[in-house]
């Protein structure tokens, strides 16, 4: 610096804007938290030590792994795979596929999950204890034609499957697919049309363009809501009792509480497990968002701004 700068303004050392309301809010919250803690500590019915014990009981842990976590993973895998397929069908040029996808979404979004699980677990086994796979109206046609065979090719005893976790996974997965389809559709539509054109111009066929170029970019938009759906699914596994599947976290810990006449610790044990599982999922979601956001994080350069302007002009 030159010597004439002695009276020029230097570094800024200013008082911040006062925020008195923050202090008020802090005091109010502190009082509420103190009240909560006092009730936790003074009310014996909470019985936290027993809740921790329930959390570690074998049937509860088994319910957590085999019911809640396995059910969530299974239902989400089915839901995402089927959902992406339905989203692609929904965006297809084929009107039949579009129609099927629309009806699917319409139907499964309208049915409450609890009702769907009862329907699959109890209703289906009442209607079709054994599935016959063959020609439609095969028995009637065979009767009219006087055939020996009843035109059935395969049989499947549904009774062996009903009230297993698999029915729960199928029910939750079918329902989830309807929501995932909408999420995936929004993600696919969010990818710039120029991306598909660039891939086409390079000679890539449509299927490969979707798999290699469009879907990976759509993931950036699909992942955050899918994380929400997964966390919601963890909680919805508590509906598995509707199938009925009893190897499931909430049912097991609630029952444990009831058997020991300690209802509250049973509920608290399940609550704490749900909190732990969902916290872990949130960490995983943050990692996935970073992974699929790669290549998008850089500061918008002037070119990027110019592109935005061109887009706006078109």
């Amino acid at each position: 610096m030159t010597s004439t700068t002695s009276d020029r303004p230097g570094a800024i050392d200013a008082r911040p804007v006062p925020h008195p309301l923050r202090w008020v809010a802090m005091v109010v919250i502190a009082v509420v938290v103190a009240m909560l803690i006092s009730s936790f500590v003074t009310n014996d019915k909470w019985n936290f030590p027993f809740a921790f014990e329930i959390m570690q009981q074998t049937p509860v842990i088994e319910g957590l792994w085999k019911g809640t976590i396995f059910g969530t993973v299974g239902a989400m895998v089915l839901g995402i795979a089927l959902g992406v397929l339905i989203a692609i069908m929904r965006l297809s040029a084929n009107p039949v596929l579009r129609g099927v996808a629309f009806v699917y979404t319409w139907f499964f979004r309208a049915i409450p999950r609890y009702v769907l699980l009862v329907l699959l677990g109890t209703g289906l086994v009442f209607l079709y204890p054994v599935f016959d796979i063959g020609v439609p109206f095969g028995q009637q046609i065979a009767g009219v034609l006087g055939l020996e065979s009843n035109l059935t090719f395969a049989q499947f005893d549904y009774r062996s499957l009903s009230s297993t976790i698999w029915v729960g996974i199928i029910g939750l997965g079918l329902s989830e697919a309807a929501y995932m389809a909408e999420i995936a559709r929004a993600g696919i539509l969010s990818v710039d049309r120029g991306q598909a054109e660039a891939a086409q111009a390079l000679g890539m066929p449509p299927g490969r363009t979707m798999r290699r170029i469009i879907l990976p970019q759509a993931m950036r938009v699909i992942v955050p809501p899918t994380g929400n759906e997964t966390i919601a699914m963890v909680k919805d596994t508590s509906l598995l009792i509707a199938v009925p599947v009893i190897v499931e976290l909430f049912y097991q810990s609630y029952q444990f509480g009831q058997r020991t006449f300690q209802i509250m610790p049973g509920i608290v044990a399940a609550t704490l497990w749900y909190l732990i599982v969902c916290s872990i999922l949130m960490v995983g979601q943050a990692w996935l968002e970073r992974y699929f956001g790669r290549g998008f994080g850089a500061v918008p350069t002037r070119t990027q701004q110019k592109l935005t302007k061109i887009e706006a002009d078109h």
Partner: peptide
């Protein structure tokens, strides 16, 4: 049609590079 396009290169006004790839 994809096969016909293989031998024809194209550059776009807006580049259309795949942003998720290096």
């Amino acid at each position: 049609i994809a096969a016909q396009r293989r031998d024809i290169g194209m550059c776009f006004q807006r580049f259309n590079l795949f942003p998720h790839k290096t």
